Simulated assay, not measured.
Amino acid sequence: MISIQGLRKVFKTKTNTITAVDRLDLDIQDGEIFGVIGYSGAGKSTFVRLLNRLEEPSEGSIKIDDKEITELNTNELRLARQEIGMIFQHFNLLWSRTIEDNIAFPLEIAGVPKAERDKRVEELIRLVGLAGRENAYPSQLSGGQKQRVGIARALANNPKVLLCDEATSALDPETTNSILDLLVDINQKLGLTIILITHEMHVIRKICNRVAVMENGKIVEQGDVLDVFLHPKETVTKKFVEQVMGNGEEDDLEQLLAEYDQGNIIRLHFVGESANQALISQLAKKYNVDLNILQGKITQTQRGAYGTLIVQLLGNTDEIDKAVQYITNKTSVEVEVIRNVK
């Protein structure tokens, strides 16, 4: 669907040269929700603006549906942009226009007849959950409602791709979740490819299929969201994962080992369906061991749940070994032995 090769953007001033995007390669599949995450200054917003040439690339290739975006002339680019919707952090609505007039604006620009335009606007207002608010003005709306108008406007021309540049960062957590749920619904109903730019890992966790991590204009890590959460390689990725999972576990581990100084201590890594297994109760029934959950956290991604539990096992050594062996051989839960008492 989208193929990006060698993409580069250099900003030049009188005294300095800044490489905002540095020879970036990326493939995004048709119909997926793809996240791009990075801290401020990583180059992610410049990257997304290069995709529809709101910023002109210095070098590189951008292909959408085998159409080379970087080679289009002005008229061809105007037509191509109708297939690339975009929503922004600060909504960018026309304050003197009503909701329906804001949504209709790109259709007016495209020369769509009024009857057809009105029908499309009505469909979009229902889709984004704003029925009954058609004649309101942006100043009369909440932040979440304004972003729903922005989404409807971006969908007006039936785009194939939706670009979201920090679309939820100005919203409170509850409103953020409702907007993310709306994007998932749109993705499923319309088969739309969504590229989501953010600095918040919980946004990636909640709706994205795959993610690329940007730092200093480069993609330093990418993959399925669940895999990146489970096995972050780069320091910047680990920091983002800590936003969701917390970073106190290793600091607390020594204290746990000192406080619970008897028995074996294991860490269980749950992935996907295994996170929903009643494993602890199964072990207690099957083996003559006492189990004490010392610490744990489980969270959800689009591909399923994952998380960790730190468990103390007390009892006969042979029974403990059998219990650990059962987990290792009979389930998809990964076992890490932290303390093994013989």
Results as ranks from 00 to 15, higher is better:
L162P: 02
D290K: 12
G132C: 04
N288F: 09
N340V: 13
V289T: 11
A284L: 10
I327E: 08
V21S: 10
L294K: 06
I18R: 07
M201D: 04
I4M: 13
V337M: 15
Q255M: 13
T74Y: 14
T74S: 15
C164A: 07
I280T: 01
V184C: 06
D66L: 02
S58W: 07
V225H: 06
I64S: 03
K342V: 12
K67H: 07
R339Y: 01
V161Q: 03
T237S: 00
Q222F: 04
L50P: 14
Q255Y: 05
G35L: 11
D65K: 06
T198I: 10
N52H: 08
S58G: 08
L124K: 05
A258T: 11
E319Q: 14
E221H: 04
I197Q: 09
I298D: 13
I99P: 00
I69A: 06
M1D: 01
N187R: 04
Y260H: 11
P173R: 05
T13L: 14
G248M: 02
K160L: 02
E100D: 10
N264P: 05
R120T: 01
I266R: 02
A284N: 11
N52A: 08
I33H: 05
R126W: 04
G304E: 14
N292P: 07
T70R: 13
S281C: 12
T74R: 15
G85Y: 02
E215K: 03
K297P: 02
T317Y: 05
S281F: 10
V271L: 14
V48T: 12
N329Q: 15
L230E: 09
A275V: 15
D181I: 01
V213K: 04
K238D: 07
A154F: 00
T308L: 15
E116V: 05
S178D: 10
T193K: 05
L268E: 02
L162F: 01
I84V: 03
N329S: 14
E334P: 07
T299G: 12
R49F: 08
D227K: 12
F34Q: 11
V289K: 12
L7M: 10
I28P: 00
L314A: 05
V121E: 10
T15F: 07
I84T: 04
F88A: 04
P57A: 15
K119D: 08
K238H: 03
L313Y: 12
Q145Y: 08
F240L: 05
I33V: 03
D101M: 06
